[in-house]
Design a binder for these strands. Structure first.
Lengths: 186, 186
DNA sequence: CTCCAATGTCAACGCTTGTTGGCATCAGTG
DNA sequence: CACTGATGCCAACAAGCGTTGACATTGGAG
């Protein structure tokens, strides 16, 4: 039996995600993805059109932020920190996005949409003040993405060595303050 | 008069820094740098050997952390936050490094050295506890690099719009806690 | 002046890339 | 069986890349 079209498409996507996550958009070649998927490069083009569309398919992504309605107000920062670490380690989609957004304006725009569209509303619903919500969401993004950058991309040893619990213990209060506190440590 | 060797070298370096900062290592071409510097691509090779060496010359970098001995202990976080924003905006060297470190393991290693070698000692001298100093430095790196990523690379609008004072007001307490406080908001 | 080293230009090389079109091979249908 | 459409492979293209070596031009030293 020869593989079905869907099987091939799926195996291409798996290989593409791994390559894009490991090497970023530019350094990833269609030929390498095809080799990983054990097919001919031309099949990639047949099924996904071109490299850009393949990337778009591989980087389809949702932050999947948890529902924070039932979380005690003083545990929101910790809950968010824990969720973010787990979400990041669940699959390679965020890695794909970050590694490419840094040198690709279009993908950077997509990252802006994700954080504005998913973190923004959360900040609005949590903080009483809609005027500061966008900034609060932005601050949360700086700490979350900074952690991801240092832990998963640059691999700074002290950051890599932290356990989930330690990350939550240190970053939780920070996110808590950004979302619900004031600038001066409130 | 024809340009001196040093003038040419310098103009190549200027063009290289701009290109590397804007596009990252892979997307930057020797040809583009040469065009910016108004010379032939072969001159770049003559003066810098190859693309890697040119990058090394363009990304030569020092965090130039300030002396914190005279800073009041409760102002250290704010001072560090202010210095970092100014240092980042002073020239393009950090941008060059970050844009490339994300997809280049060798440059990532250099980034690790910079933050371990310059932020580490500072954390040691500040916190009484040498055992936690590396982790504290790592935490500071997550917040500093996260800010840089969101503000200068991804350009998240709410983060871009913050003034220097606002950045210091929000991030100062975070850095303060990472360096001198304990995990649970102390 | 002549000569020579420094500075710069030009054309080309070998390689890799994304992408394309033609051809082979198989599964299922009549 | 023949036929057809889906699936896959192969070879090649044009473009861009880093890099190289030969050649031209300048300016100062003797």
């Amino acid at each position: 039996m020869r593989r079905s079209s869907e099987d091939t498409k799926a195996s291409i996507l798996v290989a593409a995600r791994e390559r894009f996550a490991a090497d970023g958009y530019d350094r990833t070649t269609i030929r390498a993805i095809a080799a990983d998927a054990a097919i001919d490069p031309s099949m990639v083009m047949r099924y996904f059109g071109n490299k850009e569309k393949l990337f778009a398919a591989a980087a389809d992504f949702d932050l999947q932020l948890p529902d924070l309605a039932d979380v005690p107000r003083d545990r929101i920062g910790a809950t968010l920190a824990a969720h973010f670490v787990e979400r990041w380690e669940a699959d390679e989609a965020l890695m794909v996005l970050l590694r490419t957004a840094v040198t690709n304006e279009e993908v950077a725009g997509r990252m802006r949409e994700i954080f504005a569209g998913q973190l923004g509303p959360l900040a609005v619903s949590l903080s009483g003040d809609p005027g500061s919500a966008a900034r609060r969401a932005g601050l949360v993004a700086t700490q979350m993405l900074g952690l991801a950058l240092c832990r998963y991309v640059l691999r700074l040893p002290p950051v890599v060595e932290m356990t989930h619990q330690e990350v939550v213990a240190w970053l939780g209060p920070t996110l808590q303050r950004y979302l619900l506190g004031d600038a001066y440590g409130g």
